[in-house]
Amino acid sequence: MEVKKLSWLLRALLILIGLACLWRLRLELYDLRTGWLMLSDPYETSLYTRAFVCSLFLSLSILAVFPCLGSAWGIFRQAGLGRGFYQEKRLRVLAWLTGLETALLAASDGMMLSFRVDRLGSGFLRGVPAMLDGTMLLYIGLTLGCAALTAAVLALSRSAGHAAALADENALTV
């Protein structure tokens, strides 16, 4: 009973994350559309191209969250049904998806840093802290968090693989 409740609560958390991502995606798509319109501007082409590519990567990284949520939903559902560590494949798929998310976030970070290159003009020691403002720190933290999550899910999938192999061995012995 408690495992079922736990499964439902974790799925409620996934729904909340999904709603937050939808909200963020709406804003990002608006930026993307504006960036596309600005591309036709003959002046500042390089700046607008960077802005458009940055918005594109950010939108893609938000879109990539949804398959992760779907995969996590499946895992929590199975866990709620009382199936423990027989989910190696699902966990590995989730690790791939979070890995993809990390890569997209890292690409967005790179584009966001390219916007702040002008701040390096005041010298490296002053320029780097100026480049790492609140938004930049937030996105770098998000990327690192996603990388740590990928490693954790990979480790879990391996543990699940070991547990499944042990269970098979025990069944054969019996």
Binding site: G141, G145, A148, L149, A151, A152, A155, H162
Partner: peptide, 16 residues
């Protein structure tokens, strides 16, 4: 080994 990797990844998340 997997437990240690898991522990380190979780600790990295806590540090963040």
């Amino acid at each position: 080994m997997d437990n240690k990797l898991l522990s380190r990844s979780l600790r990295a998340l806590v540090v963040l």
